[in-house]
Design a binder for these strands. Sequence first.
DNA 1: AAGCGTGGCAACCGCCACGAG
DNA 2: ACTCGTGGCGGTTGCCACGCT
Length: 331
Amino acid sequence: MGRPPCCEKIVVKKGPWTPEEDITLVSYIQQHGPGNWRSVPKNTGLLRCSKSCRLRWTNYLRPGIKRGNFTQHEEKTIIHLQALLGNRWAAIASYLSQRTDNDIKNYWNTHLKKKLQRQNGITNEDNIDMTEMSSCNNNNNNICTNSKRIANKGQWEKKLQTDINMAKQALFQALSLDQPTSSISPDLGSPKPHHSATATYASSTDNISKLLQNWTSSSSSVPNTSSLSNNRSSSTGEGGVLDHQSLLSPNSESGSVDEKLNLMTETSIFKGVSKPIVDTEATTDDHSSLSLIEKWLFDDQGMVQCDDDQEDLIDVSLQGKNTDNNCQDVF
DNA sequence: AAGCGTGGCAACCGCCACGAG
DNA sequence: ACTCGTGGCGGTTGCCACGCT
């Protein structure tokens, strides 16, 4: 038996989020930063469970989320990481800077699983768990068996996660010093192809952009990075919070909501977000230097490549073969 | 044109980990 | 050391759009 639902006592609304709710949530997070989700419904008046607020933010409203079709590069990355990590979507998502774990999970379940099934000539009747199957793509069957056995709570997971987190943390620290600005994918805010015509609000990122744009009037210039830096430096422990006005005020300087949301990623208010916003410029500047983790991911298929999609990956410049070693050690 | 089946995605549910008291 | 509250994660469900008959 698990704990009772977090919002059992109060009447909570379920189902798709409305634009008004989204705005309320975004506004609140703009002012207070993410985190302390329990207080969000209370303070905003949203009739939503705190969990629901958090999910809505992390999976949909959070700036820097790339939506739309997965690139081949992303696809291959997911396949490889899934084979290595299993269904640990959050961990996998940490390597795809702009994708949410939910997105990756959905994509795996709806596309990649079937694709792999086709490639491996496995029929649905076989009812083979693709998670396990792909895990067994590793060379060592014993590894496969053992890792499956301890897949859910094994200590190797913690070690692996710790190693990854440490490496990433070091990288982010380095990047944050060297790369003051970022350029989030232009895909952000673009409507998802599949649901672009849908009438359902919740299915269209574009809608919230449009809606938010109604809150903003025409404007001339984009807030410069230095002002953001000032915000950051003058922030509290929660991190620098963009002036609420900069996002929603009619007098805002910034042109599009997407731009504003993108800029939000540059502030540190998202420190509390589980998945770090990645400075993509660091990766796009030097496409020629394929990161070790990517090499490692793609080596076995001899498909080391450097295309436009590469910017989607975190350039985890881990030392030497550490990543490889870490991953193998834990097995 | 209507009915049905399927696919895709957002959101919910239940469990776990962890920190605070 | 223990309990409780909260956040995080992965699995699953429900809804909607689309395609096929």
